[in-house]
């Protein structure tokens, strides 16, 4: 299992489009990807779960990947979030 603390910097927060970009990207990997936020776990491959988390700009989240391709998944997750999720 690998994980990293990240700050969401895109202005919209995890809304429709950013959440869609992120969940689609994570869907490619076979490992489990979880976003820990405000004490809860959210399935990062699910657009609806990410939206339900209501993560706004400036929030601290932790991305946790667990499975065979966890390193690749985490690397892409970090890259996506740091680059502002395609906004």
């Amino acid at each position: 299992m690998v994980s990293k603390q990240l700050t969401l910097t895109n202005a919209q927060g995890f809304h429709m489009r950013p959440a869609s970009v992120f969940s689609t990207a994570m869907g490619k990997y076979s490992c489990d990807v979880t976003i820990k936020f405000n004490g809860s776990d959210y399935n990062a491959k699910s657009l609806l779960n990410i939206i339900a988390a209501c993560i706004k700009c400036g929030s601290e989240i932790e991305v946790v990947c667990s499975g065979s391709d966890e390193n690749e998944a985490l690397a892409e997750a970090i890259q996506l979030i740091e680059s502002g999720l395609g906004e």
């Binding site: 869907g27 657009l47 609806l48």
Partner: peptide, 10 residues
């Protein structure tokens, strides 16, 4: 967006 939602794997 509706397509993205209904295809949500979860």
């Amino acid at each position: 967006g509706h397509i993205a939602i209904i295809k949500d794997p979860y």
